[in-house]
Amino acid sequence: MRLLFSIGAVLVAGMFAGGDVAGIAAPGPKFESPKNQPQRPAADRDAQTVDVELVLAVDVSYSMDMDELAIQREGYAQAIQSKEFLQALKLGPNGRIAVTYFEWAASSDQKIIIPWRLIDGPETADAVAAEILKTPIRRASRTSISGAITFAMPLFDEDPYRGLRRVVDISGDGPNNNGGPVTVARDAALEKGIVINGLPIMVKEPSYSTMDIDNLDFYYEDCVIGGPGAFVITIKDRGQFKEAIRTKLLMEVAGRTPERPVMRVADKEPRVSCLIGEKIWSDRWGR
């Protein structure tokens, strides 16, 4: 079941009421120790356990302008350093998370900006934020959400830490128009116990010169996200960028969903075609 809402529905302060972390997903096969491998001591296993393994997958396609890309980078860095984020971190059963950050465009274009890093307090949060900000901003062609999800899946196998939850966070301003169908990649991730959340960016009016579409939030809700407690936070104004990113990270770290009632979407025919991006590209450029 997927939980869907806009940023206006999120009450950050209410997320921390009650103290218990909710929405823990069942671990996938990687959590089973191979029989031919020696078991690590319990204390060592505990030291490697984190509350969530979080993959941040960030769109850098040409439809994102340089200002948006800069605000996006700053938004992630500031969110990780914020007192609200650090408070959410402390409330987890282990008080630490593992995070990696990569940028994506076409199906063959993904670049890891931050390899797996442990965040367990202000010092490690500051170090990760500094790494995010120091990398030069780049842009690239095409938009392959399916490629980003496919690239993200094996990253969990490379993570030296083991999380109670595994989450891929996809941000982007357009539908999939390159690589395999997004639903195939999404379903493969869900089979591995990975949760996918979305941050659709809708700050521009759709036009013929771009791949933007109406109702990108519906597209993300019905075609991209999935898994226990999966959610979408929509950005419809440039001024919402940093607030939306901070709220999204808070919820992912705390493993929470809004306390107020939210709309529940059952499995049904998507409101926006999950192949709309591929169709637009083919209609315009014939390939």
Score class of each variant (00 low, 15 high):
Ala17Met: 10
Arg142Lys: 08
Ser6Lys: 14
Gly193Arg: 01
Gly147Pro: 02
Pro228Cys: 08
Phe241Arg: 01
Val182Gly: 00
Met1Phe: 09
Arg96Pro: 12
Arg284Met: 00
Asp126Gln: 14
Ile112Gln: 13
Pro200Ile: 05
Val12Pro: 09
Asp283Ile: 06
Ala70Val: 08
Pro93Tyr: 11
Asp214Arg: 15
Thr234Leu: 06
Gly226Val: 02
Gly23Thr: 08
Val184Arg: 11
Asp267Trp: 00
Lys204Ser: 13
Asp51Asn: 08
Arg246Cys: 00
Gly286Met: 03
Ile233Lys: 05
Ala79Leu: 02
Asp157Arg: 07
Val10His: 05
Pro29Cys: 05
Val60Ser: 05
Met202Thr: 13
Asp46Gly: 03
Arg256Ala: 12
Ala129Val: 01
Ile149Tyr: 06
Ala79Thr: 02
Ile71Tyr: 07
Phe218Gln: 11
Gln81Thr: 04
Gly239Ser: 14
Gly18Tyr: 00
Lys268Ile: 04
Pro200Leu: 04
Gly226Trp: 00
Asp67Arg: 15
Asp126Gly: 13
Glu53Asp: 14
Val168Trp: 05
Asp126His: 12
Asp159Asn: 10
Asp159Lys: 01
Gly179Ala: 07
Phe151Gln: 05
Arg264His: 11
Ile225Ser: 05
Ile112Ala: 13
Ala130Met: 02
Asp44Tyr: 13
Val265Glu: 06
Ile149Met: 06
Val60Tyr: 14
Ala57Asp: 02
Ser282Asp: 12
Ile233Cys: 06
Met1Pro: 13
